[in-house]
Amino acid sequence: MSISCAIVSYHNPPAEIADVLRSVAATPGVAVMLIDNSRDDSLGAIARQFGVRYIHRPDNPGFGAAHNLAIEEALASGATYHMVINPDVTFGPEVIPGLRSYMDAHPGVGLVMPDIRYPDGSHQHLCKLLPHPGDLLVRRFLPTLYSLSGRLDTYEMRSSGYERTMDVPALSGCFMFLRTSVLRKTGGFDERFFMYLEDVDLSRRIGRVARTVYYPAVSITHAYQKGSYKSSVLLRRHIRSAILYFNKWGWFFDDERAAVNRAAMRALEEPALDAKPSPPLANRK
Rank of each mutant, 00 (worst) to 15 (best):
S2I: 03
S4K: 01
S9C: 09
I17V: 10
A18M: 08
P28N: 08
I35C: 12
R39P: 06
S42G: 07
G62E: 05
A70W: 06
A70M: 08
S77V: 00
A79H: 07
V89W: 00
F91D: 02
I96E: 09
L99E: 05
M103E: 08
D104F: 10
D104M: 08
P107L: 02
L111S: 06
S122Y: 06
H123F: 11
L126A: 11
K128E: 13
L129V: 04
P131Y: 05
P133G: 05
G134K: 01
V138G: 01
G150P: 00
R151F: 10
L152D: 04
V168M: 14
P169V: 09
G173S: 14
C174L: 12
C174H: 13
M176Y: 15
E191P: 15
M195E: 13
S203I: 07
R204E: 12
I206G: 06
R208Y: 12
R208S: 09
A210R: 10
Y215L: 13
P216C: 06
I220N: 09
H222Q: 07
Q225L: 12
Q225A: 14
G227V: 15
Y229H: 14
S231G: 03
L235R: 15
R236H: 13
H238F: 15
I243F: 13
L244I: 04
N247G: 07
N247H: 04
K248T: 07
W251R: 05
D255Q: 02
N261M: 01
N261V: 00
M265N: 07
A267K: 07
A275T: 12
K276F: 13
P277F: 13
P279E: 12
